[in-house]
């Protein structure tokens, strides 16, 4: 491109051979590549600055006292800005959840069995992220008086998705089960989420 530009205005001194042009093109290529690398390297800090900052990442665990939750009810706690449902299941709800065949589920991917979705020895406690996997609404069903859908778990008022008592989607349009946050039992009445 440099050659053609020079040629158009007639500044072509004698002795300017193709070897020269090749060398110049190579140099221009190196410079262009260097400039591209520079722009790319400079772009990353801008993009990364939009990722969660250190203070956001640091607020990653929440302690919850679960003793006051009556059987058949759930509470909502906030973890990383998201609602977490902590549900105290009744014996009937546990049995219902355990009796569902994985093959009947809309989303059979693990964790799909009830045993996979709770902590062993704490079967009455279900902890899920309370965000409908369809378009991000918060399903109803924490109080026994709320609409809970046909499967006794949660009912999303936005588009009618229904979840069972293990937080698995049983009726669309939501494609996935309610995800599980990382959590652990510190004592029998206290869990640490995150």
């Amino acid at each position: 491109m440099a050659d053609s530009a020079a040629a158009t205005i007639g500044h072509h001194p004698p002795g300017h051979g193709p070897a020269d042009g090749t060398k110049r093109d190579f140099l221009a290529l190196v410079a262009g590549a260097g400039g591209a690398v520079l722009v790319g390297a400079l772009a990353w800090p801008f993009i990364d600055s939009m990722n969660p900052s250190k203070d956001v990442l640091a607020l990653s665990s929440t302690d919850v006292d679960i003793s006051p939750i009556p059987a058949g009810s759930a509470i909502t706690v906030v973890w990383r800005g998201k609602p977490i449902f902590v549900r105290h299941r009744t014996a009937k709800e546990i049995t219902e959840a355990q009796n569902v065949k994985v093959a009947d589920l809309i989303d059979p991917s693990a964790p799909a069995t009830d045993a996979e979705r709770i902590k062993a020895g704490h079967e009455q406690w279900l902890v899920v992220i309370g965000i409908c996997t369809h378009l991000g609404c918060i399903p109803l069903g924490n109080k026994p008086t709320d609409p809970r859908g046909d499967y006794g778990g949660w009912f999303c008022p936005c588009h009618g998705s229904q979840y069972d008592t293990a937080g698995r989607v049983r009726h669309g349009p939501a494609p996935l089960n309610l995800p599980l946050p990382p959590y652990a039992f510190e004592t029998d009445t206290k869990i640490k989420i995150g």
């Binding site: 990353w44 800090p45 801008f46 990364d48 600055s49 990722n51 900052s53 250190k54 203070d55 956001v56």
Partner: peptide, 8 residues
């Protein structure tokens, strides 16, 4: 705390 915030 912001990633590369000091650089910006």
């Amino acid at each position: 705390d912001v990633n590369y915030g000091w650089l910006l």
